[in-house]
Design a protein around this nucleic acid. Sequence first.
DNA 1: CGGAATTTAAAGCCTCGGCTACACTTTTGT
DNA 2: ACAAAAGTGTAGCCGAGGCTTTAAATTCCG
Lengths: 152, 152
Amino acid sequence: MTEPTQTDDAGTTPATSARFSQARAAQSMAVLEDYAEMIDDLTAEMGEARITDIAARMGVTHPTATKAVARLKREGLANSRPYRGVFLTEAGAALAARVRARHRVVVDLLVAVGVPSETAELDAEGLEHHVSEVTLRAFEAFLDETRSGSAA
Amino acid sequence: MTEPTQTDDAGTTPATSARFSQARAAQSMAVLEDYAEMIDDLTAEMGEARITDIAARMGVTHPTATKAVARLKREGLANSRPYRGVFLTEAGAALAARVRARHRVVVDLLVAVGVPSETAELDAEGLEHHVSEVTLRAFEAFLDETRSGSAA
DNA sequence: CGGAATTTAAAGCCTCGGCTACACTTTTGT
DNA sequence: ACAAAAGTGTAGCCGAGGCTTTAAATTCCG
Ligand SMILES: [Mn+2]
Ligand SMILES: [Mn+2]
Ligand SMILES: [Mn+2]
Ligand SMILES: [Mn+2]
């Protein structure tokens, strides 16, 4: 998380390393994002999000899910008390909503450029976390114009 | 890396968790890929890839770069001997070539759908690792048809 | 040649995200 | 009501990928 002390040549080198830093930062949010969305899904579908169900859907063991939830709590995105389900805070719910919307846009964009929908769904799960705001807006604009003027 | 014992309902549930597994698998290759490409770049540009230069370009400290190189060696992608530079094996060079080509396609695709090129370059660094073969080919096909029939 | 600067190595610490094993609650069903 | 089953918590292990600090080797230069 903490970047190494910049070899700042007084504005000279435009830090080519910035790309990698951004990718690392994005990745550090990925798990949080996926769990938030999943908890939101489960709450909607089943009324509550239980650790076992979260773990099953994420494809991990329950202690792993427990740890992830602990991190969500630490970051103020969720609450939970022993043996009761997990609940998103307002911030957590807001994150889940954003993540879900972005996921859908990414899948749609992939399909729009010709990726088979199953593959799109698979790849989107990893891709989504690296789609910046700017790129997301570009995707939306592309989808808009594609959906309206579909001149074959 | 090791997936938890599948709750395999005899072919019933098509493992919704598969998406997450794939994303995790892709991510586990990301660092290797970026370092391989970087070592290849440095070798081309400067005749050799030194730990210090690798670290600077990746935006990490040199001990971190050393560890990454150790992993590359362990995986048969690079060689190095104390106080001499780092060199890619044939497998490493092949990986670097693939990664570089994929990176370019991803950037081009992003630009083609309207992402500003600076943003494309930044986002591509993270995105590229989650672009499957199938998606890559779809991107190439899209770029081909776009570049030829550009009917405004 | 020899000392200073640069580069590399080595050790040790941290967080995160996996896992297993085991203990404890809670829920379920007879 | 109570035993079995299911769910949850907790401890401890591991590897990856960051970091700092300290020590050694190499390279550069006067
Ligand atoms: Mn995801
Ligand atoms: Mn998603
Ligand atoms: Mn990359
Ligand atoms: Mn790249």
